[in-house]
């Protein structure tokens, strides 16, 4: 085990994978200087053919990734902030996610599209979004949202080795957290959730950076005699429904923590799965701790008022276990 910062773990994965497979090409805005640090040093090591800054033209870049992959390369497209994925959304939604089916399976698209996402840093409405619900709805794209350094490395490697498109969302400017990264070849499979903490009273499914908040909440809950089980789905497509359902079967209560806006969030989907396949297991309503249906305000005091917090998780869980209507 080595202690690595989240962003360093991604950087390690990139070095190792690009060394392993000469057909991996990294391109995107400012990948050479590396704003977040995840692509640092790659240009010097692998040269301009394989690591290349692009103009700011997301609508073209996502289409280019499709063309490069169709022509036999394995592109990694860094889009910096996930909000910029909207500018490049056409080729993601209309080409990347559909061409495998449209061509009757002829076109394999080993593409990784990565970006930093999420709020909490006063980056305001256009740099704080959490767009994975959109990608989940497209159908033909895997969606990985690691919560820690070790998973970031392992999920990134799985993404670039897959022959299907993957969206890899990293915590961007929040990527400095240290974590344990297993030594040697470390791969994390898609569709395998992790149980971060075991507990008997409530299941908390927490996505990405929300795992840390859930962990803080679980400690506070334990002090109140409530044992929370924390499930980290790690990928939203594919989603490990079985692990979530098995946990509900034990705890019979479910709270989902998601920093997407509430309406049609990943939390909504997980709640739907619980209602559909786990109805008989539940003894309380499924609750979601999300961002309300607003875009992210700038002032820290405003942002804090809408961003999920460990306090909100605690109060939601306590209301559930005391059998009151939750907040």
């Amino acid at each position: 085990m080595a202690k690595r910062r989240f962003i360093q773990a991604i950087n390690d994965a990139m070095f190792e994978e690009m060394e392993r497979d000469p057909r991996i090409i990294l391109f995107g805005e400012d990948v050479e200087i590396s704003m977040f640090g995840d692509t640092k040093g790659l240009r010097d090591h692998f040269g301009p053919d394989r690591v290349r800054d692009t103009p700011i033209c997301e609508a073209l870049l996502t289409g280019m990734a499709v063309g490069m992959a169709a022509a036999g390369w394995r592109p990694v497209l860094h889009m910096m902030f996930s909000n910029f994925m909207y500018t490049g959304f056409d080729a993601i939604a209309n080409q990347m996610s559909k061409l495998h089916l449209m061509t009757g399976g002829q076109m394999k698209l080993p593409i990784t599209v990565m970006a930093g996402f999420g709020g909490g840093r006063s980056t305001a409405a256009q740099h704080s979004d959490c767009p994975y619900p959109l990608f989940m709805n497209l159908g033909g794209i895997n969606v990985a949202v690691p919560s820690n350094a070790g998973d970031a490395k392992g999920l990134f490697k799985t993404a670039v080795r897959s022959n299907d498109p993957a969206i890899f969302l990293e915590p961007g400017g929040r990527g400095g957290e240290l974590g344990e990264v297993p030594d040697g070849e470390h791969l994390v499979s898609f569709g395998k959730a992790a149980i971060r903490r075991e507990g008997r009273d409530v299941t908390i499914v927490a996505i990405g950076a929300m795992v840390k908040l859930a962990d803080q909440a679980a400690k506070a809950l334990a002090a109140n005699g409530v044992e929370a089980e924390i499930i980290d789905p790690r990928t939203l497509v594919p989603l490990d429904e079985e692990t979530i359902l098995a946990s509900i079967a034990k705890t019979r209560r479910l709270v989902i923590v998601d920093e997407a806006r509430d309406r049609c969030s990943a939390a909504s989907q997980i709640a739907a799965v619980a209602a559909d396949r786990g109805f008989g297991l539940l003894k309380a309503p499924v609750k979601r701790v999300t961002v309300p249906n607003v875009c992210m305000p700038y002032a820290p005091v405003l942002e804090r008022s809408v961003y999920p917090s460990s306090e909100r998780i605690v109060s939601t869980v306590l209301a559930l276990v005391s059998n009151q209507e939750a907040i």
């Binding site: 073209l60 280019m64 063309g67 022509a71 080409q95």
Partner: peptide, 22 residues
């Protein structure tokens, strides 16, 4: 043949990517 495309202009990015690959 990377495909006919139902999105007007949809081939522009794909062809640019294929040209980069070439």
């Amino acid at each position: 043949i990377l495909g006919a495309n139902g999105i007007v202009g949809g081939g522009l990015g794909i062809a640019t990517g294929a040209a980069f690959a070439a």
